Simulated scan of single mutants.
Amino acid sequence: MANILVVEDDMDIAQGIAEFLEPKGHELDFAYTGKQALALLEQHQYQLVLLDINLPFVNGYDICRHLSDDILGQHLSKVPVIMMSSRSHEQDIIQGFKSGAWDYLKKPFSFAELSARIDVGLMKSASRTSLKQVTAYAGASLDDETLLFSYQNSALQLHTVGYEILKLLMTNAPNVVKTSAIHTHLWPNDTPDSDPLRAHIYKLRKQLKAAFQQPFIETVKGVGYQFLVGEDDAI
């Protein structure tokens, strides 16, 4: 099974997660503050992180940014993060995805649903690791093992969702990939209520533009997105 870090300051919720997941064979570590979580992430390598937002000292958004920005080490940019929070407003959910979260689970939730989302995250992570190949198109390349996007002797470290988006677009380039197809690829069991894809695309284009002076992703209104080299348009 998987080695999972549970970051949750509510002891009852943490205990319930433990009682449900440990019999399934998962090995769990627990952090009850943001500082504890960062310390554990520096010391250990996890296959998945369950992350609350309202934490003492360092909140879940900031922890997720540390992971997606690769501040704590290259391997951490590959770790799927599932946010768990009672914050249900659309802006909170979008902020979670923009921080680099893989999934967002609203409290209260069933442990069966949590387990299903963990399984999806782990399967995607395992398939990405096992492929270890490079996707290339028009001089741009994407390394499945390191999650590095490269173009003209420059490289950008991607977070998990950014990698998945570029992988799908590059694989289908120059064709347009429908928005619904991207949603299904990223969230096969349950498309989120809000529009996290738009937030992810915005963040990814901004990172690409800063690193390579072009966003690589073109919006085709009413249809979806397309990977293009040498194009620049606004969302």
Rank of each mutant, 00 (worst) to 15 (best):
G230M: 13
L41M: 15
D193K: 09
S99L: 02
V6Y: 00
L55S: 07
Q214D: 01
Y61H: 05
V229K: 08
L228V: 15
F97I: 12
D193G: 10
D143E: 14
I217S: 12
A39H: 11
V161F: 08
A140F: 13
A14V: 10
L169H: 07
A116G: 04
I71R: 15
H183L: 10
H183W: 06
I63P: 01
Q74W: 12
T135Y: 11
D195I: 09
A18G: 15
L131A: 11
A155L: 03
I93Q: 10
I71S: 12
T160H: 01
P23E: 10
D233R: 06
A173D: 04
I94S: 05
A101L: 06
E27D: 07
N3S: 08
L67E: 02
H159A: 13
S99A: 15
L166G: 11
T184S: 14
V79H: 00
E113Y: 13
E27V: 07
Q36N: 05
L38N: 07
A234Q: 08
L50D: 00
F111V: 05
Q45W: 06
Y104R: 01
R205K: 11
F212W: 05
T33C: 01
M84P: 01
A173I: 14
L51A: 08
Y46N: 00
K206Q: 09
S110I: 03
S77L: 02
K124T: 11
E113F: 10
L67Q: 05
H200N: 03
L147T: 14
V220S: 02
L114D: 01
T171M: 10
S150R: 14
L72N: 11
L204I: 05
P80E: 08
V79K: 00
S194H: 04
K221A: 11
Y225E: 03
D119G: 04
P108Q: 08
S154D: 13
D92G: 07
I235C: 09
A2V: 12
L148G: 08
Q91P: 00
L55N: 02
L204A: 09
Y202V: 08
K35F: 04
L114S: 03
L166F: 13
Q36H: 07
G100E: 01
R128A: 13
S68R: 04
L114T: 05
Q74S: 14
D10G: 07
V81F: 06
A112E: 06
E90N: 07
I93L: 11
K35L: 06
F216K: 05
T191G: 04
A39T: 15
G60S: 05
D12Q: 05
P196I: 10
L105H: 10
D29M: 11
Q226W: 03
F212N: 04
K24A: 12
A210I: 00
H89P: 00
G60R: 06
G162L: 07
L156P: 05
A199S: 12
D70R: 15
Q213D: 11
L72Y: 15
F20Y: 14
H66F: 12
G73K: 15
M84H: 03
S150P: 09
L48A: 15
L197R: 00
R198A: 14
Q95H: 00
S77K: 13
H44N: 06
Q226V: 11
Q207T: 00
L168E: 03
I53E: 03
K178G: 08
H26W: 06
G162K: 02
L122S: 07
Y61P: 04
L21E: 04
